[in-house]
Simulated assay, not measured.
Amino acid sequence: MREFSESYLSRTREGMWADSRAALEPLALDSRDRILDVGCGTGELSRVLREETADDTTVVGCDADLELLEVARGDDPVPVVAGDALRLPFPDNSFDLVICQALLINLPDPAAALEEFARVSTDLVAAVEPDNAAVEIDSSVDAEDDLERRARQAYLDGVDTDVALGADARRAIEAAGLEVLATRRYDHVRTVEPPYSDGALTAARRKATGDGLADDRQTILSGAVTESEYDDLRSSWREMGRTVIEQMGTQEYRRAETVPFFVTVGRIA
């Protein structure tokens, strides 16, 4: 199981569900009594679920990372419990909806986690998972789309979990013995444009230094990429990053990243 920092979760989940929550309709949130958000991290999805449910609905977050749970307990707190997705600290039939967001793609055996979700649910189990192989980039820097695609594919080849699972999460849900009720697609679009946020400026600097790619070096080299190919990619990456910073200096830089998520809902058979 990969671990993620608060800053990574904030950057990748910022604005998630801000424009539409229609893909959550199959969850029938207005009729739920108790909901468990597994792998809740800093609580972003838990807060969305709380907003979409009745006042007397209980929404509980669960995560194995104690530092992330401390953030979830912060300024806009949600009830959270420390626990492993494969050994949830709840008795059978404790909730009527158990859900996760961007969790299964980081697990070696998603069906095993879904079986555990089903153990503590009386009705629905849902997975909100991305298809990271289908991410699209539209950038004012011509080289950025191609380099991001190359780096993403090299990373995908090196990871040992299915980070493109979202588009086919129904297979894992069916393997867990659940009946698939619905699948809805939601495109999470992250934009960078003037005035640039501190996070966008930091990301640009990390491109120019190659630090962002360096963080993934071990994973990339676990795939088919050679040391020489990685060095060439990082050199081009840094050059691209310098162009991004130049365009930011003249307020010309624009970037839109579209990450397709799939909400797949299963029912206890």
Results as ranks from 00 to 15, higher is better:
S7G: 09
L9Q: 13
T12W: 14
G15K: 02
L24C: 06
A28F: 09
S31A: 15
R32L: 11
D33H: 14
I35A: 02
I35M: 06
G41S: 03
G43T: 09
E44M: 12
R50N: 10
D55H: 12
T58P: 00
C62A: 14
L66D: 15
L69M: 14
P77Q: 09
V80T: 14
V80E: 10
R87L: 14
L88G: 08
P89Y: 12
F90I: 13
N93P: 04
N93K: 08
F95M: 09
F95V: 07
F95E: 10
V98P: 03
V98T: 05
I99H: 04
C100F: 07
L104P: 06
I105T: 12
D109Q: 03
P110C: 00
P110I: 01
A111N: 02
L114V: 15
E115T: 10
L124S: 04
V128E: 01
P130W: 01
I137H: 05
D138A: 05
S139V: 08
S139M: 07
S140N: 01
V141L: 00
V141K: 00
D142G: 12
E144R: 08
E144F: 05
D145P: 08
L147R: 01
R149Y: 11
R150W: 00
R150C: 06
A151M: 01
T161E: 15
D162V: 10
L165S: 08
D168K: 04
A172T: 11
I173Y: 07
E174Q: 13
G177M: 07
R184Y: 07
R184K: 13
R184C: 13
D187K: 03
H188S: 03
V189W: 05
T191V: 15
V192H: 03
E193F: 13
P194L: 09
P194S: 11
A200W: 06
R206Q: 12
R206I: 00
A208G: 06
D211Y: 11
L213G: 01
L213K: 00
T219Y: 05
L221K: 08
E229K: 07
D231P: 13
R238C: 12
V244G: 00
Q247Y: 03
Q247T: 06
Y253E: 11
Y253P: 08
Y253V: 11
P260C: 08
F262A: 05
T264Y: 08
G266F: 07
R267I: 03
R267E: 06
R267K: 04
